[in-house]
């Protein structure tokens, strides 16, 4: 047998470690199995209405000043030389919540930590209904903007570090980090 060279072996090893973690495929297969009554629906399936209400309540708590109010209109310990960043939350059918209460707790913890550090500027959950104006070609057809956070960081690197800790991506959601342009 013509044996593999060490370089070929190494290349094959890399190929054998390739991973495929696509929550959308998993959900699609589970849905197909459920449709054929081959697996039972999840017992922990959350009441989505309740989850949305809880999430809205959690974010409303933030907005109504639980964190912001404690600091007045500006953070209590403003970080010197900071910039403001927006973190947009996107979702599509790949966004799956198995435990709504955990989700709310995680999102709240994330915001609370930022609030305690004096970095949180604002947060909003957006309503589901979209009233799109203008060309449909410009509209994002693959995912929906569902909320955003505004926070302060000294530079983009710190903002990226903060954004990476947000739990939204753990549920199959997407995050978009944008810096707020300073207009003189």
């Amino acid at each position: 047998m013509d044996a593999l060279t060490p370089q070929e072996q190494e290349a094959f090893e890399q190929l054998s470690k390739e991973q495929f973690s696509d929550p959308a495929l998993e959900q699609k297969i589970i849905a197909a199995l459920q449709k054929k009554a081959l697996v039972k629906p999840s017992k922990n399936r959350p009441d989505m209405k309740k989850v949305i209400l809880q999430l809205a309540a959690a974010i409303a708590l933030l907005i109504s000043g639980y964190f912001l109010g404690k600091m007045g209109s500006t953070p209590p310990n403003p970080v010197a030389d900071t910039n403001t960043y927006a973190l947009f939350l996107y979702e599509n059918e790949a966004f799956k919540v198995s435990d709504g209460e955990t989700l709310v707790a995680e999102y709240t913890d994330w915001a609370e930590t930022l609030g305690e550090q004096g970095k949180l500027v604002g947060a909003e959950k957006l309503a589901d209904a979209v009233d799109w104006l203008g060309s449909l070609g410009v509209q994002n057809q693959t995912s929906k903007l569902t909320g955003y956070f505004l926070f302060q960081a000294k530079d983009l690197a710190e903002a990226q570090q903060i954004a990476k800790t947000h739990p939204h991506t753990n549920y199959g959601g997407g995050l978009e980090l944008r810096s707020i342009d300073k207009i003189d």
């Binding site: 998993e26 589970i30 199995l33 697996v39 039972k40 999840s42 017992k43 922990n44």
Partner: peptide, 8 residues
């Protein structure tokens, strides 16, 4: 149990 969780 044939549950979705165990299948996952």
């Amino acid at each position: 149990e044939r549950s979705s969780e165990h299948f996952s």
